[in-house]
Amino acid sequence: MVLDSLTDPRVLYARDGQGDIHVVLNPAGRAEHVGVISTLGGNADLAMTYDRFDHVIYFFEAQSDRTGRIKRLE
């Protein structure tokens, strides 16, 4: 799981057991799951980070390339 801000989080991003990336709005308050923004990846593809400067997610997936690759999600 990653937050868009460590001091005032508005969005939480989390990967499930199948590698899908989910979005939760207002994680510090009345949280609302708004859905999946990426289904790329598999059950072993759980690595992910959020770049707070560029506001993008970087994640690992081995579905489109069996040796694996890092993808950028804006």
Rank of each mutant, 00 (worst) to 15 (best):
D65M: 04
D45G: 01
H55V: 04
Y58T: 03
A47W: 12
D16W: 05
M1V: 12
G29S: 06
A14H: 09
Y50W: 12
R66G: 01
V56K: 13
F60P: 00
R66L: 10
I37W: 11
Y13L: 07
R10N: 14
R15D: 02
N43G: 04
V11R: 15
Q18L: 15
V2H: 07
G17M: 08
A62S: 15
L6A: 10
E32Y: 00
K71R: 14
D8K: 11
T67D: 13
L6S: 07
N26A: 09
E74Y: 05
H33M: 11
I37A: 09
D8E: 14
G42D: 14
I21G: 03
K71A: 13
S5Q: 09
A47C: 07
L3D: 04
S5L: 04
V24N: 03
R10A: 11
A31T: 01
G42A: 05
R72F: 02
D45N: 13
H55Y: 03
V56Y: 03
V34M: 08
Q18A: 15
I70R: 03
D65R: 11
D4P: 03
M48S: 06
Q63M: 11
S38I: 06
G42S: 12
E74V: 02
R72H: 03
A62R: 15
Y13H: 09
A44T: 13
R52G: 10
D54F: 11
G29I: 01
V23M: 07
H55R: 15
L3A: 06
G17A: 13
I21P: 01
G42C: 05
A14C: 10
L46T: 06
Y13Q: 09
